[in-house]
Design a binder for these strands. Structure first.
Lengths: 105, 105
DNA sequence: CCGAGTGTACGACTTTCGTCGAACACTTCA
DNA sequence: TGAAGTGTTCGACGAAAGTCGTACACTCGG
């Protein structure tokens, strides 16, 4: 059977203060993760599949921060933990944020 | 004559990376300053006129961060240093940011 | 000219944050 | 069963950030 692992804990974007979202996106590594995830299909990317210069431990930490900021949802799929950007919920709670995140500039 | 003091150094919002803006707004004190300044007329508020729980030194530091993030412009007016929110420039460089900052919630 | 008011600069302290290595748990596949 | 792969947790470390007190510079009003 599957799901023996502790399920990741999420927070509704509506319960997240905007300063927490800003803090989450202020880190270059997390911003890069969010940008890459934004350009990917839901549940298509495992945690280890992101091209960022950080080890496994740091990566796990960053995903916890993003989860706690309501930006990312995670689900266990076999041995891997797959991700999805919470586009709709975030857009509803913080309109314009997504456009701001992957601005060309 | 006026202006003997070193003029505050500003940065164009277009030259500011979005993660710098996020970092600037991630601090509760700075977020509060920006919100109060947003609701005020240009050049109407001196640095010391903001209702935040921090001393003079800390306040000066926070204004330097906001200036460097392109969010605020300062000008010396006699003994006081008055502020203005860079609404138009910021809106052009980061559309939707202002709405995000003083969202009701 | 002196005193009060405003803001900056500097140094020191404390806390937080990002990073890593190692150990562990779980899944999958041979 | 055993080995490889994936991700979390823990402790430790160094860097960065926020705060404060003090000293300093400047302006304005008696």
């Amino acid at each position: 059977m599957a799901g023996h692992r502790a399920a990741p804990q999420h927070r509704d974007p509506r319960d997240v203060p905007v300063e927490t979202v800003f803090a989450a996106l202020a880190d270059p590594v997390r911003l890069e993760i969010v940008r890459q995830l934004w350009g990917s299909e839901d549940w298509a990317r495992a945690c280890g599949s992101f091209d960022v210069a950080v080890g496994k431990a740091g990566l796990s930490h960053h995903f916890a921060v993003l989860r706690d900021a309501g930006l990312v949802e995670q689900r266990d799929e076999g041995a891997r933990r797959v991700n999805r950007a919470r586009r709709a919920e975030v857009e509803a709670a913080f309109p314009g944020l997504w456009q701001l995140v992957n601005q060309p500039h």
